[in-house]
Design a protein around this nucleic acid. Sequence first.
DNA 1: CATTTTATATGATTTATATCATTATTATTT
DNA 2: AAATAATAATGATATAAATCATATAAAATG
Lengths: 236, 236
Amino acid sequence: MKKNCTESPICSKCGNTQSIICGLNDTDKNEISYRKDDGIYKKGDIIFKEGNNAHNLFCVHKGKIKLSKLGKDGKEQIVRFAKSGDILGYRSLLSNEPYHATATAMEESEICVIPKEVFQKIVEDNYKLSLNLIQLLSKDLKSAEQHLIDVAQKTVRERISEALLLLITSFGYLADGKTINVHMTRSEIADLAGTTTETTIRTLSQLSHDGIISLEGKNIVITNHTELIRNTNTYD
Amino acid sequence: MKKNCTESPICSKCGNTQSIICGLNDTDKNEISYRKDDGIYKKGDIIFKEGNNAHNLFCVHKGKIKLSKLGKDGKEQIVRFAKSGDILGYRSLLSNEPYHATATAMEESEICVIPKEVFQKIVEDNYKLSLNLIQLLSKDLKSAEQHLIDVAQKTVRERISEALLLLITSFGYLADGKTINVHMTRSEIADLAGTTTETTIRTLSQLSHDGIISLEGKNIVITNHTELIRNTNTYD
DNA sequence: CATTTTATATGATTTATATCATTATTATTT
DNA sequence: AAATAATAATGATATAAATCATATAAAATG
């Protein structure tokens, strides 16, 4: 559910320096600022749906988003996350396809909505931007392939350990440097690791029992990072 | 093992019209023809290895290639295939990273080897090419994400059915219109479907018993395509 | 604040698939 | 052609994880 926001972020003054939009010149940024719409999405709100026609590029100004696809019997599979500075939907716009996944806000998020034509126009006269998009796609493809191997070959305990590490790289820690900076239900973690809710609950409490993590309400605290990595059974 | 070939294919006269190289102008094609090297790879030959530094773009002129990554305990996972007209290694060249996967010839293959600098130079002054690369990456990412869900959520029988369909879309049929145009061992099919050799053997003979396929020596013949699709348990 | 809903926790049971073991068949090499 | 190696085929057994069932705790809602 999108609502209008009183003060819309201005692209040329956006704090997200790592965003792909930031590499653009001021003319382009101003064009985007002028044409874009701005939306606040509440926790659980759907930003776009898998299979729907793609009309916009989404630029996450603030918040946390999960990208998921529907699998067998409607079971959800989380494919990746997005946070401040990330852009969503560009793949569909570039190849004129429907959205590949469903984007859901994991917490209150502020997202700039840039119309398809504006984005396409800017890509057309920005060779540099197209190279950056290639980098982005390469990165996403690389992690998708890795995720594939993980899910295909690892045990549930290894996959859940991987999932926790992914949450850390995606969202980081709270100020204490050990509490994962995101709230997810056991069921969502299951959708990420490719297992069931019950097994996730059991495995997390095992990890907790083994002193690797600590479950404190909605928070997951990493108490032994080295051991967590060892539990993923990866060597690189 | 690379050998010199007496008559190297000339890019401007290459029959592979679908290749990304074909969209280039004659100047670029001639530059590639002049600078490229040409190699014949025998069945089982490794074209490049996961983790090695990337120095070349590979353009498959003829043959069949499997791209695989090493997973847990050295277990192989096939991530995709390449055939005539496909290019390999471009992702690593564009992002200056080592090769992401190992490329192995599945049968005698003829592959043009284009030096990194030549490719990079051409990408630099070819905006159109960079857009095509984006399309390619998008396509690969899309299928990687689908493959992820398949492996995560489907049963072995469903995954093996998917694997057979992937072989069909990758390599097509022989002239009879029903024999899959590629030879793979049960172990390789297992590496593709993410299961074990024994289970693959059992499942294939079940599919054969159910009249969906027919196992004729090294060949797999699809006798009931509709039923094979139904066995993948996919609806789209 | 009571009530309904949603999330977490654990136990018991089942099942798909891996693993181990052996034999048969088909290729490859000498 | 004989010998060797690689691949395919089956059976028996073990096991990780799903499924089913129920209980408790926490959040959301009227």
